[in-house]
Nucleic acid binder design. Structure first.
Lengths: 147, 147
DNA sequence: GACTGCGTGGGGAAAGGTGGGGAATTTTCC
DNA sequence: GGAAAATTCCCCACCTTTCCCCACGCAGTC
């Protein structure tokens, strides 16, 4: 499985394209075929899953019973935002308008490696996010991984 | 199996035709033969099943116990609205009047990929639908897919 | 100091969405 | 039963968007 890490602030050009950092590109499995599935993240950002990783997610959703009202709604909410994009010859992807609108991304994007996915943030929004979550890492670690 | 995802707002022309997004067309299996079965959706929308996927649904409904009053009624309700349509040379389908009336679709249509089917919504109705389902994704995911 | 890798920008060709005309078929009405 | 009207289907044409390719400049490396 691909393990992404690190951060970078890149620009988004007039055509809505942004480069994926070379370090993250080299972390991709060959099975990903240079293709990602972008979707709406929890919090105001875009989740970027490599194709092979997304297949696993998709499988889960496909097994839900669509005769169940809540399941139907969940599938709608997740899939309507999902979009498949591929790297161009320069190692860039183009951001679907619906998603960059949602995340408030315009001409700058903060790219964060987060294990099995990459996250795209509006740099300013991310700064705000940090301000709202001032708990220090030590406390969090204890809360989450404690016992 | 075809896996549809993404969203798009397209127009419906004066002849009641609407294009199927190219991304969804490429997701079609060859067995679908560019043919869909449209039927009344749960919630106020139109369900669009590729031919091969519809066969599976048909099988499911065919296996229901027709001695059961509810099952009998459900099958009637679903099948009486079902209609088969094919893509034209431009990748469009024409919407049966009964269905577009039911969904309230006029000159604009919101097209949503939802796994094995495509959904057609009146954009405004969909906005209302979203307002009525404000549960956040995280809670819903937990409810539906367990811990 | 030249070379290579990487992020950025843009031009041109191809594809995709939209609209409409006209022939063939079906429906309706006299 | 036949003519008129409406509908359906197939094709062509336009225009915007997308995709693919080429080019530049900066940075780190040998």
């Amino acid at each position: 499985m691909a393990r992404f890490k690190g951060q970078a602030e890149y620009s988004v050009d007039s055509k809505g394209r942004t480069a994926i950092p070379a370090k993250m590109r080299t972390a991709l499995s060959p099975e990903a075929l240079g293709t990602f599935t972008l979707t709406k993240g929890f919090e105001q950002c875009i989740y970027v899953y490599p194709l092979d990783q997304w297949k696993i997610k998709e499988e889960e959703y496909g097994n839900l019973n669509t005769n169940n009202r809540d399941a139907r709604h969940l599938v709608r909410m997740i899939l309507m935002w999902a979009e498949e994009v591929s790297l161009d010859g320069q190692g860039r992807i183009s951001l679907p308008k619906a998603l960059s609108d949602f995340a408030g991304i315009r001409d700058k994007v903060l790219i964060i490696g987060a294990m099995d996915r990459i996250e795209l943030w509006n740099p300013e929004h991310f700064a705000h996010y940090l301000l709202e979550h001032t708990e220090d890492q030590e406390t969090l670690a204890e809360k989450v991984m404690g016992s």
